[in-house]
């Protein structure tokens, strides 16, 4: 514990700030029902009420408490983004490592499929599929995971390629270790650092992507609170100079900046560069 604390102080300032912010978001997301003063869907007052003691950030277009929806939005938006990225990493990571180890036909076929998928802009592809299958949370997670696992596949394959050719992996394979063992014990530990940084980057990307879809009215559907759609629903207020609709957008921006700060530091550390600060 003490060494962990010590380690924390050695982290550069921006990364420290990022870590604290990410932690704060996670706490809010997990304990949303305890922290939020009202429920996320209950209609409490008139629409667009101003900031007051009763409703700290006013009410939204339907008269729901803005602050409560902001807090529940953390849970929904972050939860869905995490689910999609995790799924993308499981699929993309597994196929990427297999492609690096097995090579040959398997590698060629999967790589060509990934090339084709990456040739279509992901927003356009997502819109196309959502038109056909309709918008629901499981479909949203699946579509984003499929679109994103192509990038994960490329990174994992490239990173694993460098490790597969090393002597100790060859020794392990000559020893007769199984595929799963080689992946788990020899390759994964050695590509963990770049993958972790990539996880952060992909999370930011997916998080912004979901926010964009929700903002377009095609992501997370009402009445579930979500930051992207909250901006859309209350955007009219901006024309009166009220900044309330910008708060959910700011919440998105602050989290992505924080994650980016942490990722920057991770990349620096794993590349062995000394930080100038």
């Amino acid at each position: 514990m003490q060494s962990m604390l010590k380690g924390f102080w050695a982290v550069p300032l921006t990364a420290k700030l990022g870590l604290v912010v990410v932690m704060a978001y996670l706490v809010v997301a997990v304990f949303a029902p305890v922290i939020a003063p009202y429920s996320e869907t209950e209609i409490l007052g008139a629409s667009y009420e101003l900031w007051s003691d009763k409703y700290p950030l006013g009410t939204d277009s339907l008269g729901r408490d803005m602050l409560s929806r902001l807090i529940f939005g953390a849970r929904n938006t972050i939860g869905i983004a995490l689910a999609a990225v995790t799924l993308a990493f499981l699929v993309g990571g597994a196929t990427g490592m297999l492609a690096a180890i097995l090579g040959g036909w398997y590698d060629t076929i999967i790589s060509r499929i990934v090339d084709i998928l990456m040739a279509i802009p992901s927003l356009v592809f997502a819109l196309l599929i959502l038109t056909i299958l309709g918008t629901s949370i499981p479909i949203l997670i699946l579509v984003i995971a499929v679109l994103d696992c192509t990038r994960v596949y490329r990174i994992t394959r490239a990173a694993a390629m460098n490790v597969v050719v090393l002597e100790y992996v060859e020794v392990a394979r000559l020893r007769g270790e199984g595929l799963w063992w080689v992946i788990r014990k020899e390759i994964l530990p050695n590509i963990m650092a770049p993958l972790l940084a990539e996880f952060g980057l992909r999370f930011c990307f997916v998080f912004l992507f979901i926010a964009a879809l929700s903002f377009l009215g095609l992501g997370i559907q009402p009445p579930t609170a979500d930051w992207g759609s909250m901006v859309r629903d209350n955007a009219t207020l901006i024309n009166y100079g009220d900044i309330t609709p910008l708060l959910p957008a700011a919440a998105i921006a602050i989290l992505t900046v924080a994650v980016n700060f942490v990722v920057d530091w991770l990349l620096h550390r794993s590349s062995g560069l000394r930080d100038p600060i």
Binding site: N239, P245, L246, I252, A253, V257
Partner: peptide, 23 residues
């Protein structure tokens, strides 16, 4: 640039609207 990469497009757009169109 690191911060502006992290901003959702609609956030940038609405900030511009707020300051240059409304205010």
């Amino acid at each position: 640039t690191l911060t502006s990469i992290s901003f959702p497009e609609f956030f940038v757009a609405y900030i511009l609207i707020l300051f240059f169109a409304v205010k």
